[in-house]
């Protein structure tokens, strides 16, 4: 049996790495991916607590998070494609104008 703490610590590490990636990456797609990493880290904590507390709520939350992530990916990637079309770059530093 693995102590729940281990899962939570792993989740925290993954979340921290997600934040780091979010800050240090310059490619907008990779930045978007680091958001997914953070969501995944949170999901792990949810499932771990769900098992520790003996309730299924946590797992249901994870399903909702996955649904939201899917919706977010659909819209977000649509926006990214538009940005790439109109500015010819994926670098967030170069996307700094509200209007072309």
């Amino acid at each position: 049996m693995v102590p729940t703490n281990y899962y939570v610590i792993l989740s925290a590490i993954l979340f921290g790495l997600g934040v780091l990636a979010f800050i240090f990456k310059r490619n907008i797609i990779t930045i978007f991916m680091s958001i997914e990493l953070m969501l995944n880290a949170v999901n792990l904590a949810f499932v771990a607590f769900s098992q520790a507390l003996g309730k299924l709520d946590g797992q249901v939350f994870v399903l909702f998070v996955i649904v939201v992530a899917a919706a977010e990916a659909a819209v977000g990637l649509g926006i990214i494609i538009l940005i790439a079309r109109s500015r010819q770059t994926l670098n967030v530093e170069r996307v700094d104008l509200l209007k072309l």
Binding site: F49, S50, L53
Partner: peptide, 11 residues
């Protein structure tokens, strides 16, 4: 956290 461990039903 540790005290409530393993009281869970089967998911």
């Amino acid at each position: 956290v540790e005290t409530t461990l393993q009281t869970g039903e089967i998911a």
